[in-house]
């Protein structure tokens, strides 16, 4: 038993040490994320506002190609009504075809369509942005070691370059970006979006909302996962206890205690 505990300590240290590797020298800005923790859930209002920020600010350069319009109405997400999601979809023109003449055509998007893409492909995206590709945002939160804290901090991390740091044209200084130089200018400014629910659109508010939305985009089943996890672990603990006592009962038949 003692050895087992020693082993557990070693294992935890071992696995825990890997997080040191991904920790940056700069500490990220901290905020309360409603979806963290064992019983974490998304804040619906934040998701809806976050979608608005993505749609009105980010989507002109950043695609989100693995998310579909119907996801906006599904449980566990922003939970727009089906009518609202349909209307959102219909406001975008997507390519379809070929038609009977063999040509591609555009039509309003349906719920079953994936999100509209600002650029046809990566090369087009690079060409339009001075050679820098605005990454697709479907799983961006999972694709960065710092996760939501990193993205949130980055959005709030634009500052004047310190003395001695020279920036080329089209390059900006960001405190939290890997290498501190980023090709995206500060995307958010106060009031750039007018929230439908009346919340004040400060840069901090928008950063938090859009990051929450990005977390959902990357992990749409997060809430189910947490709920199922809780039930699974409670169930396993109960069964473990039952099996433990069954084991003791069976082994009591053997003289030597093991």
């Amino acid at each position: 038993m003692k050895n087992f505990i020693n082993f557990l300590i070693i294992t935890i240290f071992f696995f825990g040490s890997f997080n040191l590797h991904s920790a940056e020298k700069v500490e990220y800005l901290k905020t309360n994320w409603s979806f963290k923790g064992l019983f974490g859930k998304f804040d619906r209002g934040a998701l809806q506002r976050g979608y608005q920020v993505y749609n009105e600010v980010c989507s002109s350069c950043h695609s989100m190609k693995y998310v579909s319009y119907r996801n906006l109405a599904e449980k566990g997400g922003p939970e727009f009504s089906e009518a609202e999601a349909k209307a959102i979809a219909a406001s975008f023109e997507v390519t379809d075809g070929p038609n009977a003449d063999g040509e591609m055509f555009t039509r309003p998007a349906k719920l079953s369509d994936k999100f509209w893409k600002p650029y046809e492909n990566i090369k087009a995206a690079e060409a339009a942005n001075g050679g820098a590709y605005p990454p697709d945002m479907s799983v961006l939160v999972k694709a960065r070691g710092g996760g939501v804290d990193y993205i949130y901090s980055l959005l709030l991390g634009y500052e004047d370059a310190p003395v001695g740091v020279n920036l080329d044209d089209g390059v900006y200084y960001n405190k939290y970006m890997y290498g501190n130089k980023i090709r995206m200018s500060a995307p958010l400014s106060e009031g750039i979006v007018e929230y439908g629910d009346g919340t004040k659109a400060t840069v901090e508010q928008m950063s938090k909302d859009v990051t929450t939305f990005l977390m959902w985009a990357a992990e749409p089943h997060l809430e189910s996962r947490h709920q199922m996890g809780f039930k699974a672990i409670v169930y396993l603990i109960i069964l473990t206890i039952l099996v433990y006592f069954s084991m003791k009962r069976i082994w009591s038949r053997v003289e030597t205690e093991v």
Binding site: Y235, V243, F245, R249
Partner: peptide, 27 residues
Amino acid sequence: MSDKKPERREFLFTATYAIGAVGAGAV
């Protein structure tokens, strides 16, 4: 085999099997 609490033993094993079966179904 202990004859002390045969009903308790039976119940324990039955309960374990039953709860185990629920888990198996869920999987």
